[in-house]
């Protein structure tokens, strides 16, 4: 009883604090200096119509590299935590009911389409809403669908690990190339900026998007697989 009262009181106090924030909130009339700089220089410096992608991949590229590293750590820790309760090889998914023809056939039909859509979102990251992270998540959703449709199916851990390490290494190499041939770490000026608004433009942004997409897709897939291959699954 006391617990409930204390919790209620805490949430209410926090609610009052949030209420003051909300009631006194006035939206900005104009962009702050950072955002105005990004808006004014998106075409000349980065060459990407989608300013959010320009920020994530180029201006704050180092943060994105850090974030990809956090994701890598997450998937490595999950694999470590769950490695003790892994099913022995061959016995996996043996006790499960078949998932039915509709689901299996539907998944087989949809998985290539999902992969294609993921590739589309990754490739158009600098032109339309999208990019490496979103496209990578879409790719991993295709993997999730096929895992759900065929529980006894196993994807090759080595393939996923190779894709992951290849894209991670290449991402850092592209960043270092920016230091050597352009303005700094992860500068997209190592490739020509091209014509504004076309698919092959914005320097190295499409390349970095592909690498991020592959890495995020591989990491999410390896997380899904680790969760899937536990003994009770």
């Amino acid at each position: 009883m006391i617990r409930k009262v204390v919790i209620g009181l805490m949430v209410a106090l926090l609610g009052v604090a949030f209420w003051t924030l909300t009631s006194g909130y006035v939206p900005d009339a104009e962009l702050n200096r950072t955002a105005a700089y990004y808006a004014a220089n998106a075409e000349s410096e980065v060459g990407a119509p989608n300013i959010v992608t320009g920020i994530i991949v180029t201006w704050r590229g180092l943060d994105t590299l850090g974030e990809v590293t956090v994701l890598f750590l997450t998937s490595a820790i999950i694999a470590l935590v769950l490695s003790q309760s892994k099913t022995p090889k061959g016995a996996s998914g043996a006790g499960l009911l078949p998932s039915g023809e509709l689901l299996v056939t539907g998944a087989r039909m949809l998985a290539p389409l999902i992969a294609l859509f993921g590739a589309y979102v990754i490739m158009n990251g600098h032109l339309t809403p999208g990019g490496g992270f979103q496209g990578g998540a879409i790719l991993a959703s295709g993997v999730l669908l096929s895992l759900l449709a065929e529980p006894s199916r196993r994807f090759g851990h080595t393939v996923i690990a190779r894709i992951e390490s290849f894209s991670g290494t290449f991402y850092v190499l592209v960043g270092l190339a920016g230091m050597a041939y352009a303005g700094g770490f992860l500068d997209n000026g190592i490739l020509p900026l091209g014509r504004f608004g076309t698919m092959l433009s914005a320097g190295a942004i499409p390349l970095i998007s592909i690498l991020i997409g592959l890495k995020v897709g591989a990491e999410f897939s390896s997380i899904l697989e680790s969760l899937h291959e536990t003994e009770d699954a």
Partner: peptide, 19 residues
């Protein structure tokens, strides 16, 4: 552009936060 678009920085932050 700076008179017509919303602030892109929080959107980039949220993209990171979601992942």
């Amino acid at each position: 552009a700076s008179q017509r678009i919303i602030d892109p920085v929080p959107q980039a932050l949220v993209l990171t936060a979601i992942v």
